[in-house]
Amino acid sequence: MIKFATIGTNWITEEFIKAAKEIPDFSLKAVYSRTEEKAKQFAAKVGAAQTFTSLEELANSEDIDAVYIASPNSFHAEQAILLMNHGKHVLCEKPLASNTAEVQAMIEAAKQNSVVLMEAMKTTLLPNFQAIRNHIHKIGKVRRYFASYCQYSSRYDAYKQGIVLNAFNPAFSNGALMDIGVYCLYPMVVLFGKPLRIKASSMMLESGVDGEGSIILDYGDMDAVVMYSKITNSYVPAEIQGEEGSIILDTIHTPQKVEIRYRDGRIEDITEAQLHHPMYYETKEFIELIQNEKRESEINSHYHSLTTIEIIEAARKQTGIVFPADK
């Protein structure tokens, strides 16, 4: 059994716990919140016996093996490094941190303390992403990767009324690229590695974060185009175009249907059954790394996380997105 604590009392933490409880070796021991009242309320809701309001006490607890972090992006690095310095394994929500320097510091802490650090990017561990990796050779030379994730944020209505919630506050290292665009970029990096150069554009909001944006990425013999938004919806599928055919994904973040459309008109359904909650697969990967005494996922690897944040940071520099964490 791997004994977990969680940081964050939001809906994503609830979803994580729901998914993780499908795994026999998962044991939820504690939850953390800055306030005792919220910690107790959340613990009662999710069935945790213990609460923490001090990160230091959580880090020093011998009852905890691993921590799932779902706090605002700007807190990820500091919290993760503290926990890893006390021997805790860390599964941290995407994006892993605010910038490249923070991710590098987190990776160094993981190595120094011989603990698992993994970015909780669900997409790349889903059965249908594995199907893409298994079948991509069938489409011949890949010439383009296209991914769009545009989802109107429920918090945008409040923003338009003058209320700037966390999702649109640069103090928390948020915005469309960080929160949504990462879902387009991380799978691309796993499939194709690091691009040679990028060209980014963003639609900036008055609060100092991007509401939407696009990036063109040059790989030399192929290109990639990603679009993301927190202020509009999009309904177009993702596509990997090859010289012999194209792989079509219904969505980039949680693909449920994947097919190959060949140049000769044939259509091959390569969809794999997803039998569990989407967050089950990342949690299972993380737990198995701990149990097998491995320190890094081959798919959600340190290299893939570092490359993704390097792309994000380069795009931010091109479009003028600056966070307090950068200073």
Score class of each variant (00 low, 15 high):
88 K>C: 08
88 K>M: 07
88 K>L: 08
89 H>L: 06
89 H>M: 06
89 H>I: 06
89 H>T: 04
90 V>H: 12
90 V>E: 13
90 V>Y: 10
90 V>Q: 11
91 L>A: 12
92 C>H: 03
92 C>S: 14
92 C>N: 14
93 E>I: 04
93 E>G: 14
93 E>Q: 13
93 E>K: 03
94 K>D: 08
94 K>M: 10
94 K>A: 05
96 L>I: 14
96 L>N: 03
96 L>V: 13
97 A>D: 04
97 A>K: 03
98 S>N: 05
98 S>H: 05
99 N>W: 00
99 N>V: 02
100 T>R: 07
101 A>D: 14
103 V>G: 09
103 V>Y: 07
103 V>M: 09
103 V>Q: 07
103 V>P: 08
104 Q>K: 15
105 A>D: 13
105 A>N: 14
106 M>S: 06
106 M>K: 06
106 M>W: 08
106 M>H: 06
106 M>T: 08
106 M>C: 08
107 I>T: 11
107 I>C: 09
107 I>Q: 09
108 E>Q: 15
108 E>R: 14
108 E>M: 09
108 E>I: 09
109 A>V: 06
109 A>W: 05
110 A>C: 11
110 A>H: 10
110 A>V: 11
110 A>S: 15
110 A>G: 13
110 A>T: 10
110 A>N: 10
111 K>T: 06
111 K>S: 08
111 K>R: 15
111 K>P: 07
112 Q>V: 10
113 N>G: 06
113 N>C: 05
113 N>H: 14
113 N>Q: 11
114 S>Q: 15
114 S>E: 15
114 S>L: 12
114 S>K: 15
115 V>L: 08
115 V>S: 09
116 V>S: 03
116 V>W: 09
117 L>M: 01
118 M>D: 00
118 M>V: 02
118 M>A: 02
118 M>P: 02
119 E>D: 08
120 A>G: 01
120 A>P: 03
120 A>E: 01
120 A>N: 13
121 M>Q: 09
122 K>F: 00
122 K>P: 00
122 K>V: 05
122 K>Q: 08
123 T>Y: 04
123 T>R: 09
123 T>W: 04
124 T>G: 01
124 T>F: 01
124 T>C: 12
124 T>R: 03
125 L>H: 15
125 L>Y: 13
125 L>T: 13
126 L>A: 11
126 L>I: 12
126 L>Q: 13
127 P>G: 09
127 P>H: 12
127 P>D: 07
127 P>I: 09
128 N>T: 12
128 N>P: 12
128 N>C: 12
128 N>F: 10
128 N>M: 12
129 F>A: 07
129 F>T: 07
